[in-house]
């Protein structure tokens, strides 16, 4: 169970920049249970985006956005609308955003922050990792997490230690920042990397007392 919260709408709107045409995607798994995904959250966000003058080109609900095979199958018939959109906005956890980014050739942005991986964890079947930092930055990096793909968790670009595209810590591991760079170059969004990323707020990683009292945090409670 991955516990997520909706990002504040102003933050979502700011992250969209000048993007006018948005493809909206929601997870019907953990996020639906947290009410940060699923039909209800999708419908709310669609209304809010319209009110803010953005066009929602289409929407899609997928049972588990962390499962790339499922995502690819479900999105196959939406690919044209996705390609015609400026970006994809996803109501899902950090894993979901990263999985979708691997499947579609479009900038994928998070509409949720992942707070906890507690309770029953590990539903996702693949290599994407989420640190549950509580302040998702996947929007800025094109859907690749710098906290889990960079050995130093750097937020403002590569450290200069990569050799032949591999991390200074592990010669068999790709430099996460080079992957982010390549991804943004392909999406023609390199300008993203000019934005200063302020230091993380580590207090956002602390689950609140209210959350700790729920089944989302402790299934056996």
């Amino acid at each position: 169970m991955l516990f997520t919260e909706n990002k504040p709408f102003d933050e979502v709107l700011e992250s969209l920049g000048n993007d006018k045409n948005i493809f909206l995607l929601a997870c019907n798994g953990c996020a639906e249970t947290c009410e940060t995904g699923g039909e209800k959250a999708l419908s709310t966000l669609r209304t809010e985006l319209k009110k803010a003058g953005r066009k929602v080109t289409d929407t899609c609900l997928v049972d588990f956005l962390c499962n790339k095979i499922l995502v690819a199958t479900r999105l196959a018939r939406h690919m044209e609308q996705i390609q015609q959109s400026d970006s994809v906005l996803a109501l899902t956890c950090g894993i979901g955003v990263q999985a979708v980014a691997k499947v579609v050739n479009k900038l994928v942005r998070p509409a949720d922050n992942t707070i906890s991986l507690g309770g029953l964890q590990g539903l996702w079947p693949s290599e994407e990792r989420c640190e549950a930092c509580g302040d998702c930055v996947l929007d800025y990096t094109g859907g690749l997490c710098p906290l889990t793909s960079c050995a130093k968790g750097l937020l403002n670009g590569p450290c200069g230690g990569a050799q032949d595209g591999k991390c200074e810590v592990d010669s068999e591991k790709d430099c996460g920042w080079l992957k982010i760079y390549e991804r943004l170059e392909k999406l023609e969004r390199l300008d993203n990397l000019k934005k200063f990323q302020k230091a993380r707020d580590h207090s956002k990683m602390m689950p609140s007392a209210d959350l700790r009292k729920t089944l989302f945090y402790d299934l056996e409670r």
Binding site: A151, G153, L154, L155, N156, C159, Q197
Partner: peptide, 28 residues
């Protein structure tokens, strides 16, 4: 500077901190 990862040195067991990166440090 960001600094080398501790894994490259003589205390590879040390916790890598990197609370800030070099850009955030300059700004601070």
């Amino acid at each position: 500077l960001t600094g080398d990862h501790p894994k490259l040195g003589d205390h590879p067991q040390a916790m890598p901190v990197f609370d800030l990166d070099s850009v955030q440090l300059l700004s601070a």
